[in-house]
Design a binder for these strands. Sequence first.
DNA 1: AGAGCTACTTAGTAAGATCTTC
DNA 2: GAAGATCTTACTAAGTAGCTCT
Length: 754
Amino acid sequence: MSGDYSHNNNQIDCGPRNNDPHKHKEKHKEHKNKDHKKDKEREKSKHAISDHKDPSDKKHKDKEKMKHKEGNADKHKDKHRDKEKRKEVKSADGKVKKEKENGFSSPGHVKSEPEDDFYHSPKQEKTLKREREEDFESEFKPKKIKIENDKAKGKKRKQENEDVKPKKTKNNKKGEVADGKKKGKKEPEEKWKWWEEERYTDGVKWRFLEHKGPVFAPPYEAIPDHVKFYYDGKHMKLAPAAEEVSTFFGKMLDHDYTTKEVFRKNFFKDWRKEMTSEEKSKITDLKKCDFNEINDYFKAQSEIRKAKSKEQKLKLKEENERILQEYGFCLMDNHKERIANFRIEPPGLFRGRGDHPKMGMLKRRSRPEDIIINCSKDSKHPKPPPGTRWKEVRHDNKVTWLVSWTENIQGSIKYIMLNPSSRIKGEKDWQKYETARRLKKCVGRIRSQYHEDWKSKEMRIRQRAVALYFIDKLALRAGNEKEEGETADTVGCCSLRVEHINLYPEKDGQEFVVEFDFLGKDSIRYYNKVPVEKRAFKNLQLFMENKATEDDLFDRLNTSILNKHLQELMDGLTAKVFRTYNASITLQQQLKELTSPDENIPAKILSYNRANRAVAILCNHQRAAPKTFEKSMQTLQAKIDVKKDQLSDARRELKSSKADAKVRRDEKSKKTVETRKKTISRIEEQLMRMEVQATDREENKQIALGTSKLNYLDPRISVAWCKKWDIPVEKIYNKTQREKFAWALDMAEDDYEF
DNA sequence: AGAGCTACTTAGTAAGATCTTC
DNA sequence: GAAGATCTTACTAAGTAGCTCT
């Protein structure tokens, strides 16, 4: 069932986003999720028969796991306990810490004790009143490694720690100022292998966290007086508040956004709020506003920036590096970790995607008073800028964020979190793929289950089963409900409406075809024609009976119901796991199918990209064709033509030199033949490479590979493939990606099976 | 059950950096 | 060494999903 997604090919190339008339904002939800209590009761007992997991059952399972873990940790237990006590004391007094040159203070045990100390053994967790144990995959644990290295482990780890931290500290102490590059070279051997260590088994995310807080957006810098704003043809000097907002709009003049009515309306409304009463009374019509000089000014500024001398550019770069070094890292549980986004989002105009009702609204500047800091009690707290204060400083180690604030457009919370290379993100990522691998083991059972459910007497079960079929077969997203009028009108599986599908009992020689056409996440259009199984088709017809186009297709279903059901089928199973699973399994299959052993490296990489592409198509990861696409294609084609000419020239030359050699029969002419042969094979190779590149590029015109590579494909599949075929992993993953997937690079062998 | 809130992952775009070509 | 192409990174919006409260 999985793996054959060729039918998806036609969803690319079916027009740009947002261009189809999905204009229905008023949903009718009357019958959604009503009076299903009885159903629920029945459902429960039904599932109890097969492979159920009611809460008590789950607890048993958890206990089992715990035991297992204890067994694992057994060897270090005593040591653990001892140290644990010591640690408690330390963190209680809290101030046994040293100031370090890198600006971090740290608990006293940083240097002297191994990492293990930060990881509670399960026993201790129990004393910590954890209500709910997080679920850890048996395979997720570095079991193998542990067993293999068990004896050596203790020592090894200590060594590592001694290696890791002191060196890093030294690094910082030494010539840190300008040697970002040097560090890069040293780094690899210093890298901390968090994946070889015990993890927290409860909701605790860290024991110690220290950071320097966020970097704020630079204050508004007034535009020079000669840059004028005109209203109704007359120059008008605006007060700073309104002027700043005018620059936000002025900067965007070249952008499509500024022509959209909603954008203009929202902008104008919010802009007027920033005006003085005098300005407000004068400026009443956006059409009469002339921002052109502002626009020109910022363009010029950007030219100036580009034209700066090498020295100036270097200086800027160094300054950036300095800020990065100061604010871009935190200390979490003894390890210096990179922060992903340490800058507070600057003010500007909101750019919602698709048909967003709030586009153009003013995104306010965040002040320290809006910011919540999260860090260890016993860390050196970040200081707010002089004369200001934080909204709050809290010490919540059940979450991973360092800083948060509430954004004024949707009222949602924004966070500063760690880089994907960090332990905290990496572990989660690893776990995600382990869950998907567990799904692999039981997906057959789940599939036959939903096939069965298509026959159910209960509507809600049929709906659930068909929706799950879509999620599995087509890798659709779950489709949470969203607040109407607050965001663009987009849907996922559970929120599909009647208007989003068309049913064809027969189409293009195929039976039972469903045509999907809707806007998904980011208002990317999903268009696909899929033949489905008869029973699913009949069910869909049933679901659509007596419904208006704007009614929900699955009116008895939502993501929470679906996920609850999935949870019962497999521990940790949610709708999105299917996307991960199907993406990864498709990559693995495609790689097996497409890689031919005797091809050279570029050809193999083309195969890889094609496998990657199959996944991107499955997941509907589209991109706008690059602006320069046609041109770059042409230049490449031109180069190919030149090469072809070269090749035929070279062949001609070879012929003549061969003839020559036949006549002369001397060494020199033989040599000429040889060198010309070599030339030819070189040219052939180059030509091949270019042609491969052209194919690759053409096929990739509207497809974005990055998203699936970064978020859906188990990196161990790729690493194993590289090892198997002797492809340098650098050809597949760039530096950042290698950092993110360091765990996979380290642990996957050439025989890894997803 | 459902709303509201929170935390975290997934997403495409555009700016910036770097490489390539003439 | 400028221009253009391409790759990388930053940015931030928009999803998923869990939890709490009513």
